[in-house]
Write a protein that binds this DNA or RNA. Structure first.
Length: 196
DNA sequence: CGGCCGATCCACT
DNA sequence: GTGGATCGGCCGA
């Protein structure tokens, strides 16, 4: 499991890149599931027009981002999708990384069950709403620690760990972020990272 | 309190 | 490529 020190790194953009190839795991409703992170986006806090925390905006929803790095920021989008983000940096700096894609690893059966509307053969983990649904992550999980054990179980409900396979830098594709046209010039920033 | 909108997904053409 | 689903959050009055 990645340690607290990983999440409090000051550069959210390089941290987003470094999350590629790591394994995102959940143990929710007694079911374990995991996948290798294949797509991320960095959201750079108060100076980033695409961020919910742009301009220092603080609300009950965004308050989670102002907390210590290493917690989950999950919010409802379009009235029906939960989007999972990793909060980074120190208290008071509202940086976050949106997880947009995984390659299913363990618990594929339960993930397909959770995404049962999708016909067989269709992709079911290549978008931020899809991966949260497949992994059982809900916006009510916002604020959960990714590093601290809760109650008697041996791991958090959601955590990230190193994977065996090595990420090769030249297999990483960098583009602008998706769905943030409202952010003006900031929509063009090279803050999206994908594994080929 | 009313109204608008969104870090999306899916079905259909 | 287009449009509908669907509702919490945010803002202005």
């Amino acid at each position: 499991m990645l340690s607290h020190s990983f999440y409090i790194q000051p550069d959210v953009v390089s941290l987003a890149r470094d999350l590629l190839g790591k394994r995102l795991c959940t143990r929710i409703d007694g079911k374990q599931a995991s996948g290798i992170i294949t797509e991320t986006e960095a959201y750079a806090g108060t100076t980033d027009k695409a961020s919910h925390a742009y301009g220092g905006r603080r609300t009950r929803r965004t308050e989670i981002m102002y907390g210590e790095g290493g917690t989950a920021y999950v919010y409802l989008c379009y009235g029906m999708h939960s989007l999972f983000n990793v909060v980074t940096n120190i208290v008071g700096v509202p940086h976050a990384v949106l997880i947009r894609g995984i390659q299913p690893c363990a618990g594929i059966e339960i993930m397909m069950q959770r995404r049962k509307k999708v016909k067989k053969g269709k992709e079911f983990s290549n978008g931020p709403g899809k991966i949260a649904e497949a992994l059982g992550i809900h916006f009510s999980h916002s604020g959960l620690s990714l590093t601290q054990t809760t109650s008697r179980i041996s791991a958090p409900a959601i955590w990230i760990e190193e994977a065996e396979n090595k990420t090769i830098p030249n297999e990483i594709v960098i583009t602008s972020r998706i769905g943030v046209d409202y952010a003006g010039q900031d929509a063009k920033l090279p803050y999206r990272f994908l594994l080929k």
